[in-house]
Write a protein that binds this DNA or RNA. Structure first.
Lengths: 174, 174
DNA sequence: GTCTATATGATGATAGAC
DNA sequence: GTCTATCATCATATAGAC
């Protein structure tokens, strides 16, 4: 069907589809191999374990997030909100998957890491040691934008982004 | 240990704990019975199936939500935001559990229902047929508040509520 | 690289004794 | 109401042929 060396990528594509559709825990290797028209053990030629397959699919989001909170500097808040929205929008399907399954994926330490990303993002927006009230305002802004990237996932980016960023900025008092 | 007729309630309490901790799909009947110090089949005297146990735990939230969106009328927006916050705060642990596991709990139609609740809430806030932009603003407001009820779940209600409602109101342009 | 066949273990659920 | 014993089913994973 496809070039042999593409099989690994095809496995990831199908797994990603099924994980997003039905959840990670709820998807078996059998379902993946069936949809690809190969057998279960064939998967083990390309991935050492189920976990390794899961990790390989989440990795791009993790890398993007880490890079984002590591490289940005405090500055124009609205610009930061917009860039952040672009990123969560790109990864919106995997984000939903992770949030939905945080406990199951707890072994990957993802719940803690996402919490940490958000904390650092708030520091970028508000500086260190914001008051609890301003921290909560920022959570409404950022959490609300995340919800938009999920709830309007099927709409064109520009339609959603400007309104979502406006609302987030207002929540922040900008 | 406890009065015999309390066993059903004790099962629900322990199941609820484990579901919130680890997720529904990820919790086995064996774990529940172990923590209670009884055996697996004993559970089946009190609940016809695993599903029935799960449903019995989610039911209070479903009833409260349905009642809320059914009985409120359009009116003062800030008051509505406050009452809504009180409710999601009360059910915050189960809400997390559901959102995290929407696909797994798809058979209960919960994903669709939660989406519907939010849609009706937005109608209450904005009236019928809001512009897409205002709809998105409302999603930031409501989604952002939900995030607060999760992220600050350990703080006292009043500290969180006033700041969260303020931010939501600002996102809505109030 | 992919197959058949199989090992091993957990799960939800039932039958029937006490 | 709770137990012991057991079933069918499904999962991840491995061994070894082609």
């Amino acid at each position: 069907m496809a070039r042999p060396s593409d099989t690994k990528a095809r496995i990831q594509a199908v797994a990603r589809e099924l994980f997003v559709e039905q959840g990670v825990q709820n998807t078996s290797l059998r379902q993946i191999s069936d949809r690809l028209g190969i057998t279960k053990p064939a998967l083990y030629y390309h991935f050492a374990s189920r976990d390794e397959l899961v990790r390989s699919i989440i990795q791009p989001l993790v890398e993007d997030m880490e890079r984002f909170v590591a490289t940005r500097e405090s500055g124009e808040a609205r610009e930061l909100l917009e860039e952040y929205f672009d990123m969560i929008w790109r990864h919106r399907d995997i984000t939903v998957m992770i949030v939905r399954e945080m406990s199951t994926l707890g072994y990957l330490d993802l719940g803690q890491r996402m919490f940490d990303w958000r904390r650092r993002l708030i520091t970028l927006l508000l500086g260190p040691d914001p008051t609890p009230a301003r921290h909560i305002h920022a959570t409404v802004a950022i959490g609300g934008m995340s919800d938009c990237s999920v709830e309007y996932a099927h709409l064109p980016l520009d339609e959603v982004k400007s309104a979502a960023v406006d609302a987030a900025a207002a929540a922040l008092g900008l």
